[in-house]
Design a protein around this nucleic acid. Structure first.
Length: 489
RNA sequence: GGGUUGGUAGCUCAGCGGUAGAGCAGCGGCCUUUUAAGCCGUUGGUCCAGGGUUCGAUCCCCUGCCAACCCA
């Protein structure tokens, strides 16, 4: 990034700014109220709802400039799209026409005029007057080749959005996805809440937290790693259907699938269970896909436009038990053989078990490495081993497993859900077991809340960023987060 | 943390052991229906940094920094 103001292009623009001011024009002072969007004016002229000669006032950023001498064409762009405006010397007069000499790509202008069609058939605004609304002192990235360098795209996302329309489209779609989720949950009687981001104990998941310090209280806080334990407190309080869409923070690596801060949806429904949540997740994702993508068939394409992956969201979604999937992939005797044999076989299969100390972790490594990436169409993987999930209820028909599912789509975990544990004594035991010696990690206040009585409930979480990747065909989480985490410059 | 690739003009990229190139943008000129406008002319560089090899390094070697991707 070039921040030194010694650049010649910047100097030239500053000189133009000074020239405008010398003429009594302050390019930042003018207010201008457009009465129609740029793209809107163009499309409405095309469909006939805006007639030849109709007066319009449009404003936008100059994205192209074709100087014909005594007339000029400029493309201006706003949120609705772009439109061509046509400035003629004999209409504007020498003085105003001359102002265009001090205009650059990237500047904002507002123009009044009338709609007409050029000889080439382009809907255009014949400019009768215009004002400079903002002078850009730095040049925009090239319009034709765009902006390709990933670092600049992420670090200066505004430039990426300015010139890469497909990128802007992804983020508008993301906004619509979150909006569709909200309206879906609200239509089912859920209320949206906000719970603390700074927590004395970061619970609800196994992840390394970020630490911060509160000066006045003289103590450290953690940025939350999940929303779960506070939303359950609200179930205790009588909010039977709650959800929160919020940022979680995990102090771990950065990858194609991981950003240190990411957006999570969690929803809890009293008197529901994990099967209730299956219906909820399936209906919600289908609702969002129909609303935003307009189809239950999601196509991912490469740079050449070739379809590289197709995801079929048509319900009902496949439901399969965790152990069943593992047996299919790793051998029908997987759970019968000795622990050492499992380890050996996991290595032969190519799973990475170097970090694994417990038996269930070996199985989980097989699942993560060899099974999860193959689950492209939506799959509810149910009945996970109880060791994996300490906040769920044991399954009555197989008490080595819990009443949960992990919804996998696009080869990624997208939504876990449980029949929530509401037995305070069993919950305390599970958490203490998990915490091992480190007693401080247990959220005692949460357990007190459970002791006051939590209704039976189903709960679900959903990684919004990964959902967006799946629905919008993006292969990196950085392409669905406006400002992904980067090393500070 | 490991591997791979890369860092050259505002943007996108070539190039190469012999004093740095293109397109676009910019600047000057011509042009009143262009749309990646066109035509003529032209400015612009710490070739990421440091060290080494060499008569000579943007290029080869080493180290470092930064980034992207993959793996952990």
């Amino acid at each position: 990034m070039h921040t030194e103001d010694t650049n010649a292009l910047i100097e030239q623009r500053k000189a133009k700014l000074a020239a405008l001011r010398a003429r009594g024009i302050d390019p930042f002072a003018d207010k201008f109220k457009p009465d129609i969007g740029c793209g809107e004016a163009r499309s409405r002229f095309q469909d006939g709802s805006l007639a030849e000669g109709a007066p319009v006032a449009v404003a936008g950023r100059i994205v192209a400039h074709r100087d014909m001498g005594k007339s000029q064409f400029l493309d201006i762009k706003d949120y609705t799209g772009r439109v061509q405006i046509y400035a003629q010397k004999n209409v504007l007069g020498d003085t105003q026409f001359d102002v265009l000499k001090h205009i650059d790509l990237g500047d904002f202008i507002g123009a009044r005029g009338t709609m007409f069609r050029t000889r080439a058939g382009e809907p255009s605004v014949r400019v009768e007057s215009f004002v400079v609304l903002s002078k850009a002192l730095r040049p925009p990235p090239g319009q034709w080749y765009g902006l390709a360098e990933p670092e600049t795209r992420y670090r200066q996302r505004y430039l990426d959005l300015m010139v890469n329309d497909d990128v802007a489209h992804v983020f508008r779609q993301r906004s619509r996805i979150i909006s569709a989720i909200r309206s879906f949950l609200e239509s089912r009687g859920f209320i949206e809440v906000e719970t603390p981001v700074m927590q004395a104990i970061a619970g609800g998941a196994a992840a390394k937290p970020f630490v911060t310090h509160h000066n006045a209280l003289g103590c450290d806080f953690y940025l939350r790693i999940s929303l779960e334990l506070y939303l359950k407190r609200l179930l205790v309080g009588g909010f039977d259907r709650v959800f929160e869409i919020g940022r979680n923070f995990r102090n771990e690596g950065i990858s194609r699938k991981h950003n240190p801060e990411f957006t999570m949806l969690e929803a809890y429904q009293a008197y529901g269970d994990y099967e209730t949540m299956m219906e909820l997740v399936e209906s919600m994702v289908c609702h969002v896909a129909r609303e935003v993508v307009g189809s239950l068939l999601i196509k991912h394409v490469d740079k050449e436009g070739q379809v590289v992956r197709q995801i079929d969201l048509t319900p009902p979604w496949r439901r399969v038990k965790y152990k069943e999937l593992v047996r299919q992939r790793a051998g029908s005797d997987w759970f019968e053989i000795a622990s050492e044999q499992r380890r050996q076989r996991a290595i032969e299969l190519g799973a990475d078990i170097e970090q694994c100390t417990e038996d269930y972790e070996v199985t989980q490594a097989v699942f993560e490495k060899l099974i999860e990436p193959t689950l492209i169409d939506p799959t509810f993987v149910t009945h996970a081993p109880k060791e994996l999930i300490p906040l769920a209820k044991l399954s009555p028909d197989d008490p080595t497993t819990v009443e949960v599912f992990e919804c996998c789509i696009n080869g990624q975990e997208i939504a876990p859900a449980y029949t929530e544990q509401n037995d305070p004594i069993a919950q305390r035991e599970r958490l203490e077991q998990q915490a091992g010696q480190e007693r401080q990690k247990i959220d005692g206040d949460f357990l007190v809340a459970l002791e006051h009585g939590m209704p039976p409930a189903g709960g679900m979480g959903m990684g919004i960023d990964r959902l967006c990747m799946m629905l919008l065909g993006q292969e990196s989480i950085r392409d669905v987060i406006l400002f992904p985490q980067l090393r500070p410059k």
